[in-house]
């Protein structure tokens, strides 16, 4: 069963067109993984689609790393009553 972190890495890899195996939990979306501003918006949308949640865009876009994104999404899933592990 995939963890939230695994799913965040998979979505990030697909959206940014990079290999999931190269993504580390401490990686920054912008500095380490090269996400441009429009891709940040895509990432938020893709996380919402993957997890079936609605995120506040300001809060979501303030998240900087894979690890903090995983924690943020897990928290939103709990708040919105969505099963965490897919």
């Amino acid at each position: 069963m995939a963890t939230v972190e695994d799913r965040v890495k998979a979505v990030t890899a697909k959206t940014l067109n990079i290999d999931a195996a190269d993504i580390q939990v401490e990686h920054s979306f912008t500095f380490d993984l090269g996400a441009e501003s429009v891709q940040s918006v895509e990432l938020v949308a893709m996380f919402e689609e993957e997890f079936g949640i609605e995120m506040d865009e300001d809060a979501a876009l303030s998240v900087e790393t894979i690890g903090s994104a995983s924690e943020f999404i897990a928290r939103v899933c709990v708040e919105q009553g969505v099963a965490i592990e897919g």
Partner: peptide
């Protein structure tokens, strides 16, 4: 709407 890459998104709010 933030209309980016052909779809409507929340964009930067």
């Amino acid at each position: 709407a933030w209309f980016l890459k052909g779809v409507t998104t929340k964009g930067f709010g």
